[in-house]
């Protein structure tokens, strides 16, 4: 399971500013497209080069504008320039993460992770998502992974809460009960 990405307070502030600007210009979807593209690029080798301190900021900025010259929404392009001018270029990799989180909040989406002993079918996933959506009053989107040590059943981690319906969890609870039972 991927560790929840953390963002520094500065990245959160820049991300929020971009989000609000995009929202007021009704350009959320376009900027989100740019952000996911940026996110993919920054996670690759190119991204490594872009955060390399041996490169000057001007060179990095030049490279980005050249690479994305046509595709970027004007707001995204300006945002990158603002980052460069304010000497905050190193925050760039964090911004897509912050943006995605803000967008999820805006659309009322909760993202979580479903772990199961076997690969779950799409129907099961949809059913779990539906029932959790009902409970949390938000739209729940779950990523899936397989963990054979659970033996059976499923575990869902959502908004800091672990819903444990796995056989392993039940066995553990049974053990605690039997160990602490008053004779």
């Amino acid at each position: 399971m991927a560790i929840a990405a953390q963002s520094t307070p500065a990245a959160s502030r820049y991300g929020l500013a971009l989000f609000e600007a995009a929202n007021s210009q009704s350009a959320l979807d376009a900027v989100q497209g740019d952000m996911s593209l940026l996110g993919t690029v920054l996670r690759s080798d190119v991204g490594q080069a872009l955060t390399d301190p041996r490169w000057s900021t001007a060179a990095k900025l030049g490279a980005i504008t050249k690479a994305f010259s046509s595709g970027l929404h004007p707001l995204t392009a300006d945002f990158i320039k603002v980052l460069a001018r304010r000497k905050r270029f190193e925050l760039l990799p964090q911004v897509p993460v912050v943006f995605a989180r803000l967008l999820d909040e805006h659309h009322g989406i909760l993202r979580g992770q479903l772990e199961a002993a076997f690969a779950v079918s799409d129907e099961t996933l949809a059913a779990v998502e539906a029932s959790l959506s009902q409970e949390t009053a938000k739209k729940v989107v779950l990523g899936t992974s397989v963990n054979e040590s659970l033996l059976g059943g499923i575990c869902v981690t959502l908004a800091g809460i672990l819903y444990d319906g796995s056989v392993l969890g039940q066995l553990n609870r049974m053990r605690t009960r039997l160990e602490t039972v008053e004779l």
Binding site: I161, L162, Y163, D164, G169, R173, R177
Partner: peptide, 11 residues
Amino acid sequence: FQSEASTEHVG
């Protein structure tokens, strides 16, 4: 033994 799912706060 209740075999229902448990909920726990996790990090």
